[in-house]
Amino acid sequence: MSRLGVPAALPPVRVHDLTVSYHGHPAVHHLSGEFAAGALTAIVGPNGAGKSSLLSVLAGTRADFQGRLQRPPAQQVAYLPQTASIDRTVPVTVHEVVAMGLWARLGCFRALDEAGWVSVTHALAAVGLSGFEQRLIGEMSAGQAQRVLFARVLVQDAALILLDEPFNAVDARTTADLLAVLQRWRREARTVIAVLHDLDQVRDHFDQVLLLAREAVAWGPTAQVLNAEHLFKARQMAESWDDDAPVCGGRP
C-alpha cells in the first residue's frame, strides 16, 4: 500500500475499440489502449479531437459509447471537468466547498468528523490556502478558486484522478503550485489523466501522452509521442474531419 492507502500496484485503465459520438457524429473513433497505472498521462490534440468526450467516459459520467472501458468497478474516481465552476453568489466558505469532496465517504447528512476536518486542513495547505478556510468563495480570485477545486479533489483520496484542462485561466504561480500537486500524486502511485493544451507543460511534467485526433495518433512515453511527425499528422487529420460523417459501424 502507498503512504495514503492507495494500492501500490493498481491495474491500468484500458479502453477497447471505444467509439463516442455526439448527435450521431464521431468524437472518438475506435480507440484501444491503456493508461499506465501510477503515472501522469496527458491527453493532447487539436480542438474537437474528442479529448473531453474520452475523459467523461473514463469518469463514468456518460454511458452512450460503443466498445469497452476496463477499470476496477470499486475504484474511486476524482473528476474535475472543464466546466467545473463555483457559484460565487452562494455564501459558502472555502472550507465548506472543499468538504464537499468527502460526501462519498460521509453522505449528505452526516456531520464532518475529526478525520474530515484534518483532511480538509491538509488539502488546503497542499494548495497554498492555509488560513483561507472561512473566506467566502465569492471573495476568491480565479486562481484561488481553482486551488479550492484541487483541494476538493485531494480530499477525495482517489486512486484515479481525471482533470480536464485544469490550468485554464489561472496565473503562472498557481499553475506551478498545482503541477506540484500532480507530482505528489505521482509519488503516491495514483493514476492521473489530464487533458492539456500546453505541450511544454506536458514535456516537463508528464510520463505518458495520448495524442488524439478522434483516433489515436500516438500513445506512449512523452518523448516518443510529442515529435514533429506525430504532431503534423494530428494537424492533417484535423483538417480532413467531416463533421457530417456518420458513426462507423465496424472496424476502420
Rank of each mutant, 00 (worst) to 15 (best):
S32Q: 03
G45F: 08
T41A: 03
T61I: 15
L58D: 08
S56T: 06
A63E: 09
L129C: 07
L31R: 00
V148E: 07
A63C: 04
A74V: 06
G143P: 04
G116E: 06
G138P: 15
E133H: 07
M100Y: 15
E133P: 00
L112Q: 06
T121D: 11
H122G: 02
F65S: 03
K51P: 15
P91M: 12
C108D: 09
V127A: 11
G45C: 02
T121V: 08
P46M: 07
A84G: 02
R88C: 14
A123P: 02
L129H: 09
T89P: 00
H122D: 09
A99L: 14
G45E: 01
G33Q: 09
F65Y: 04
A74W: 12
R110C: 12
A74L: 12
Y79F: 15
A78W: 07
Y79E: 07
N47L: 14
H95K: 05
S85W: 10
V118S: 01
A59P: 13
T41Q: 01
L102F: 14
A39P: 00
Q76S: 14
G128C: 08
V127S: 08
M100V: 05
E96R: 05
V57H: 03
L106R: 02
A126F: 01
S85L: 09
G116T: 12
R71T: 13
A42F: 15
L112Y: 08
C108Q: 04
S56D: 06
H95M: 07
S52E: 15
A125V: 07
A78N: 04
F109S: 10
Q70W: 03
A126P: 00
F150C: 03
S53G: 10
E114H: 13
Q75W: 15
T89D: 11
A145G: 10
Q66F: 08
T89M: 10
P81S: 08
Q82D: 04
F150L: 07
V97E: 10
A78Y: 00
L102W: 11
S141W: 00
V94Y: 03
R135K: 14
V148Y: 10
R147L: 14
L129I: 05
T121A: 12
T61P: 01
L124H: 04
P73G: 06
F150N: 05
L149G: 01
Q70G: 06
L124T: 06
W117G: 05
H29W: 03
S56W: 05
H30C: 11
W103M: 10
W117H: 12
P81G: 06
Q144K: 02
L106T: 14
T93I: 06
R68L: 09
A49L: 00
A84Y: 03
E139N: 12
R105Q: 05
P46A: 05
Q76A: 11
A142F: 12
Q76I: 14
E133A: 06
A36R: 03
G107V: 07
L54D: 04
F132L: 06
R71S: 11
G107I: 11
S32R: 01
G48Q: 11
R110E: 15
G116D: 13
S85Y: 11
G107T: 13
C108N: 07
I86F: 09
F109M: 11
T93K: 10
T121P: 03
G143Q: 04
L31N: 01
V94L: 05
A39V: 00
S85A: 13
L40E: 12
G116N: 10
D64T: 13
L106D: 02
A104K: 13
A126M: 13
V90I: 15
T89I: 09
I43C: 04
